[in-house]
Design a protein around this nucleic acid. Sequence first.
DNA 1: TATTATATTTAATTTTTTGTAAAAAGCTTA
DNA 2: TAAGCTTTTTACAAAAAATTAAATATAATA
Lengths: 221, 221
Amino acid sequence: MLSITEENYIKHILSLILESNSELGIGTNELATSLSVKPSSVNVMLKKLREKSFIEYEKYGKIHLTEKGKLFGMAIIRKHRLWETFLYEKLDFTWDEVHEVAEQLEHIQSAKLVEKLDKFLGFPTIDPHGDPIPNEKGEISTISKLILSEIEVGKKCRMVAVKDNSAAFLKFVQELGLSINNEVEILSKLDFDDSIEICVNNQKSRVSKKFAQNICVVVNE
Amino acid sequence: MLSITEENYIKHILSLILESNSELGIGTNELATSLSVKPSSVNVMLKKLREKSFIEYEKYGKIHLTEKGKLFGMAIIRKHRLWETFLYEKLDFTWDEVHEVAEQLEHIQSAKLVEKLDKFLGFPTIDPHGDPIPNEKGEISTISKLILSEIEVGKKCRMVAVKDNSAAFLKFVQELGLSINNEVEILSKLDFDDSIEICVNNQKSRVSKKFAQNICVVVNE
DNA sequence: TATTATATTTAATTTTTTGTAAAAAGCTTA
DNA sequence: TAAGCTTTTTACAAAAAATTAAATATAATA
């Protein structure tokens, strides 16, 4: 069994790889920055993780995850995002409160717990930040979250998360009749101030660019 | 912030005190046995916990918790039992599966999480093993769980937990129309084989002593 | 009370985990 | 090739938890 520190190393390696979405692997320095430790500390841990077959790397080379490492990392991200969903949906945490607690919960060891939690939540595919939740096989949906302000005119999308949590913002969201999983159609954009005309529940409204930048959506297929 | 090991020491001290239900305090050896470590290891830790004001003790004396220590210990037991209730009630874990996972979950640090979880579960007072859940002030209900076979004839009680989890047992429980929080009245006992006649939902049944020993109840006030 | 048995403490070590500084080595590129 | 990065090595440090073995105190009992 891995220590929490080891788990976090693997999680950071995977996150960096996913962010860069390339197969080039990542560097020692990069990982050290991400983890807020020195490169020499990373180097020590890399040897340990290689020994345990979670990563592949050669001296002065780039860091790659093995299949085992990738599965393991995905499992942690899966747990993290399922717990965030639980906190947000069932316990009424706000979206900006969930991360810190999920950082702890993601290290709980119980395969059964993860699968039961997934079922309890109705097999969610997106977490409260709009990020995809890997499935039990470690596969992650390619549907990427976008912000409402980036969607083209004429498209329909679905709200999956908010980025702001102030009372003023949430009150306005509610006034628009907008909530998680609601369909939003982009009717028009005004070049003058980048405001957007949208349609929610057959109700047309105009929202500012700033507002639209705080709504996460996925485009409908 | 305390380490998980420190938390477990405090939890074990409190548990031993509660079990012995006396104010005499507990001994180094006793605690060492409970934690599966050597007495000398306990002694080292005791100094640390005394330094941090969680316990009171003098050389060769008995171990007592300070008010701070007692509150802290109760908070851990509270978390443990709330999580057990969550696993059992919401995630369909069986009563014998919940403990192991709750041992991990009890160390998650978030006051908000505990209070939200408590609310989500409907402020339960008894866990799936029939043990009382301390409230947010660290107070524990004096209602103690009993086993059905110990209840006197004529009394009414309420089922709070089961002790066996075999399919055969649970099937029979179900056939009797018995479930958590159901009222059970003891109609008579047969001295010959200690079997018991009970009434559940206006339905009389006779159950064996062995069966009755696997049903936890609290007596109705 | 003296003696034995048990419980507790002390002190010196051990193991494990994680991290660091400093210097050496390799890579990149102008 | 030299300068400026990145990466590795090595030796060290600190913290947490536990242990062994010996010494000491307390409790039990003959």
